[in-house]
Design a protein around this nucleic acid. Structure first.
Lengths: 234, 234
DNA sequence: CTTCTCTTTTAACCTTACATTAACAAAAAC
DNA sequence: GTTTTTGTTAATGTAAGGTTAAAAGAGAAG
C-alpha cells in the first residue's frame, strides 16, 4: 500500500537539539519542517498543511502556548504535542487548555516520542473519516463556503459569517439531519465546557436561525440535553 | 446543564490509594466503580458500560496490561489510562501497544489526572457515533429513532420523546414480545431502585401507552410483580 | 494613543421541557 | 377483605433553551 508520508511541524529554538530531533524523525519516515522560533513556526504553519505540530514551550519572543493558540485559531483539529523542559504542573494544565494532545518532558526517550506520534496520528486518521476536507455545503437553498466564511441564499449576495458562526454552521452541516451533540461543538469550537460557553453557543444558534429563516425548509432543531439538528425538509 | 455523569472503572489493588483516588474522582463528578484486582475488574467491566478505565499496571494475579488486552477484546473503543509505579520505558511502550490512551507515573498530580481524563473523554465524544442500527426500531406502525429521540406513526409527523420516555421505549422494544423486567429498567435508566423511582417509571409507562394508542395492535402489558411486555398483535 | 468596527461573551428575563412527587383509583394477589 | 402493586392525572420544582441587549475584547485605522 502506497502511504503518504506524514508531515510534522517542529518548532524548537535550540539548534542542536532541534536538528537532531528533526533528523531522527526523518529517519523514521516523517517529513519534517523545522522552525527556529514561534514567529517562524506560525509562518510555516500558515503556508502548509501539517499532520502534527511539536512545539517547544520555552522559546524567546513567542512561547509554545501562544503559538498553539494562534495555530488553534487557524485550525481546530491539528494535533499538538508540547515539549516542556520540566514537568511543571501549570505548564501541563495550560497546555491542555490550549488544546494539546500530549506533552513530553525533556529529556524524553525518543522511542516514546515516536510511539506518541504514531498513536496520535492514527487517532486522527480514524476520527477523520469523512470530515477531512469538507468546506462547501449545500443547505437547502443556501450555499455555505466555510473556507471563505460566507453564506449565500439562492445564488444571491453572500453574507459574511464570523468565525464562530461559520464553524458552528459547518459542524451542523457535517451532521445534516443528524444529531450534532452539544459537547462536540463546545469541545471543537470553544475547547471548554462551562455554563457560559454553553450560553454563548446558544446565542450563536439564535444567530444562525436568523440567517436560515430565508429558507423555510431549513431549520435547526434542539434535542433537549443532547444537542442540535440541522434538518432540511422537502 | 443536566449532564450524565461519566463512568470510570478504576482497577487498583492498593486499598488505601484506591479508595482515596476513588473519592477524589467522585468529588469531581465522576461515577466510579472500584475493583481491587484484575479479575474483579474484568467482571465489573463486563457488567457495565464505562466511559473510561484507569488500570494500575502492577497487580497480583492479573496485571494491568493483561486486563487491558481482555478489555480491548470486548471493546475496542473505551479509553484506557495506565498507572505505572515508575517510568519504565518498556512499560510505556507496552502500554501503547495494548492500546492505551495515556499513562501516568505514580506519584502523579491529581489535577493533571483530572485534565487527562477530561481531555480523553472529550476526545471520545468528538468521534461521531453513527451506529444507526441499534437506534432504530419498528414497533407496529411506529418508527422509533432513539438517537434523535422521536417516534413517528405511519410516516406522519414525528413526536419528540423525552430522554426517559425514549430510553424506556427502547428497552421495551429491545425485548419486544418478551418480558422487560422492571428491575432492568430501574437499574439501566434510573440507576436506582426505590419506591419513588419505581412510581416514576409507572408514570412513564402511562405516557408511552398514550403515544402508542394510535396503533391498536401495539400495547404494553404488565406482568404483575415482574415487569412489562411490549406486544405487537397481528 | 484613541477611535471605530466587528466579534464574542456575559447577563438578564422569559419560555419550554423534564422528572419527580403526591394523590387517588383500579386491579391483582393473598 | 385487606394488602400490595399498578394506572393515571395533576402539581411542583428545576434545568435547559430562546432571545435580546449590553459589556468586553480584539484588530484595524486614523
Amino acid at each position: 500500500m502506497e502511504e503518504q508520508k506524514k508531515r510534522i511541524l517542529l518548532v524548537e529554538d535550540d539548534p542542536n537539539f532541534g536538528t537532531v530531533l528533526k533528523d531522527y524523525l526523518m529517519m523514521n519516515d516523517y517529513e519534517v519542517t523545522h522552525a527556529k522560533n514561534g514567529m517562524e513556526g506560525f509562518e510555516k504553519f500558515k503556508k502548509d498543511d501539517f499532520d502534527l505540530c511539536i512545539l517547544d514551550v520555552m522559546m524567546p519572543y513567542k512561547d509554545g502556548f501562544t503559538l498553539a493558540k494562534e495555530i488553534r485559531e487557524k485550525n481546530t483539529d491539528v494535533p499538538i504535542i508540547f515539549l516542556t523542559a520540566k514537568t511543571m504542573k501549570e505548564d501541563v494544565l495550560r497546555g491542555y487548555k490550549v488544546g494539546a494532545d500530549d506533552y513530553l518532558n525533556k529529556p524524553f526517550d525518543s522511542e516514546v516520542l515516536l510511539m506518541k506520534i504514531k498513536a496520535i496520528i492514527q487517532r486522527k486518521a480514524t476520527e477523520t473519516i469523512s470530515d477531512s476536507k469538507q468546506f462547501e455545503f449545500k443547505i437547502g437553498k443556501f450555499d455555505l463556503n466555510s473556507k471563505l466564511r460566507f453564506l449565500r441564499f439562492d445564488a444571491g449576495e453572500p453574507v459574511k459569517l464570523s468565525p464562530k458562526e461559520n464553524e458552528l454552521l459547518r459542524l451542523l452541516a457535517l451532521h445534516e439531519n443528524d444529531l450534532m451533540p452539544r459537547e462536540l461543538a463546545l469541545t471543537k469550537i470553544w475547547r471548554d465546557d462551562n455554563y457560559f460557553t454553553s450560553r454563548s453557543m446558544d446565542v450563536y444558534i439564535a444567530k444562525l436561525r436568523k440567517y436560515l429563516k430565508l429558507d423555510e425548509k431549513v431549520e435547526i432543531l434542539n434535542i433537549h440535553g443532547e444537542g442540535f439538528r440541522l434538518v432540511i425538509n422537502n
